[in-house]
Amino acid sequence: MVDLVYFQLLSAALFVIGMYGVLARRSAVLIVMSIELMLNAVNINLIAAASHLGYRSVGEAFTNFDGQIIAIFVITVAAAELGLALAIILRIYRNRGSVNVDEVDLMKW
């Protein structure tokens, strides 16, 4: 069985990549994709921890599904959020002809 820490390292790497995408990208679509990346990093973390904790010892049956259930919730919410985000991005594109977030800066001062 693979040690839990490797899963966590993978999850952290994915999360940081996603975070970099959110901070550095100019296109709203890419920012949304980066957010998805971060969510999936969290999912990996959750499932890894759950499967690790689910086995008390080798050969024992699963007794705890909490992590998997939360992961399914996260996927569901992420799908809904994505739909909403894409709709907003579409409206911005219709209004301004661009999805560059640098140009969307009316909410200041």
């Binding site: 959110v22 901070l23 920012i31 969307v104 800066d105 009316l106 200041k108």
Partner: peptide, 10 residues
């Protein structure tokens, strides 16, 4: 208050 999304995210 710059209005830029990424500065809030930062």
């Amino acid at each position: 208050v710059t209005g830029h999304v990424y500065s809030y995210a930062m």
